[in-house]
Amino acid sequence: MAASPLKRWARSEAVNGYLMISPTLIYAILLLAAPLVTLVAYSFFTDGYLVVIPEFTTANYSQAWSDPIFRAILTRSVIVSALVTLVTVVLAFPIAYFISFHVPATKKSRWLFLITIPFWTSYLIRVFQWKVILNYNGVINSILTGLGITDHPLQMLNSIGAISITLAHAYAPFAILPIFVSLEKIDRSLLEAGLDLGENRLMTFWRVTLPLAMPGVIGAVMIVFIPTIGDYVTPELIGGGKLPMVANVIYQQLLKIDNKPLGSAMAISAMLVVAAVALLFLFLNRRFLRGSK
């Protein structure tokens, strides 16, 4: 006789798997899925000043999207994030390449350690330090005037450039690690084959290394782009509050002005933009993977 159906059911892999995952899954449902669903629901509800009236409306979205200020802020957020992503990834690639190809295997983990240390110190303070560096009477201007290069200190803060440098610094390890991982996976004999077939180093890099590293680059792009578009601190501190990004206005609507439906609609809109960009890159990644096969 085989075991009874009930016993076999209780011993089955699927049941054990669900039991094992259930605490984490229930947590995610209660504190992630339910809140996201609520946020979506709120975005279609009507604002009754201090209360939310559960009447379906698309007014929040039309209000948000027809508001030139919100549109400008959303556009700015996308542009800043794209800029930050570009700067971060372009700066990070040579470092990942250096560690992967020019650092001896035994010292690689030490280099990665070195690169991740700054990331473990207070985000707020790291961001603020760029204010110290870029300030009117900050480090760079002190050096410039001290050396007599200029009499007029440069006005660097409160600009998109300053925001971009700050965020590029904050997300550096997030860009380096995925690129490094994909470079590590490249079979070194492929590169030798490239050289052997008469390509020079630059062409080998262009035709072999770079395409093979592309999944890592695209991973880095996603990992940097998604959190930066929702960053609250940097626009406040480095942008001086004069260049708000989407997180700042969502926060404003939800907490300060307490228009939850409009705030929700803005949050959902921002999420959709992020999702669209992420899907675009996932699609690109898939094309790259297929192309390399």
Binding site: A34, T38, I226, P227, I250, V274
Partner: peptide
């Protein structure tokens, strides 16, 4: 991992 923190913050706050 792939949600902007502000979305997590605002959805939790609302609920």
């Amino acid at each position: 991992l792939v949600l902007p923190e502000i979305i997590i913050a605002s959805s939790l706050l609302v609920v």
